[in-house]
């Protein structure tokens, strides 16, 4: 289980991020990317236990007796979805400055970028990133808190 997890988790994460980025033109997007990222974390939890992220990856000590909802990782998740929501709302508010309706989106084509030839930067990407953050933060909060029970 752990060996498999070591192999697939990075792949899943990379796929998730690529899904998020190509979402504008190919199947994918913030929601799917987010859910897939959560799946990767879920596999980590199943294989290594709930404290693995904190102890194994970040190298911190974990007090065994404390409440799961006060966990530093959970706090980070909670912050993530709050920020994600803020990003989504702010990206919607920006057009108001340019006297356009709430949540108006536009895009810019950048020509002549090395390797990619041309790169499209859509303002919707910011909104989609907000979606991604909310999904990841929200679902991981639920997952870790419920999982700790």
């Amino acid at each position: 289980m752990r060996t498999t997890a070591r192999a697939i988790v990075p792949i899943v994460l990379v796929v998730a991020i690529s899904l998020f980025f190509e979402g504008h033109n190919l199947p994918g997007g913030g929601f799917i990317g987010g859910v897939l990222t959560v799946t990767a974390f879920g596999i980590v939890y199943m294989a290594f236990g709930l404290d693995f992220l904190e102890r194994g990856v970040l190298g911190r000590e974990v007090d065994p007796g404390k409440e799961p909802s006060r966990d530093r990782v959970v706090l980070a998740y909670r912050r993530l979805f709050a920020y994600g929501f803020a990003i989504a709302v702010l990206s919607g508010l920006v057009p108001l400055v340019f006297d356009r309706p709430f949540l108006t989106q536009t895009f810019v084509m950048l020509e002549g970028v090395p390797i990619y030839d041309h790169l499209e930067v859509a303002s919707a990407m910011a909104f989609d990133f907000g979606v991604y953050c909310v999904v990841v933060g929200g679902l991981l909060t639920i997952l870790s808190v419920v999982g700790a029970e």
Binding site: G23, H24, N25, L26, P27, G28, G29, G30, F31, G92, F102, L103, Q105, T106, F107, M109, E120, A122, A124, F127, D128, V131
Partner: peptide, 17 residues
């Protein structure tokens, strides 16, 4: 919307609200 994925463009652009 500048995207060829209609579903995604709908989600983040046309029906962003």
């Amino acid at each position: 919307g500048g995207g060829t994925n209609i579903v995604n463009v709908t989600l983040v652009d046309f029906r962003g609200f």
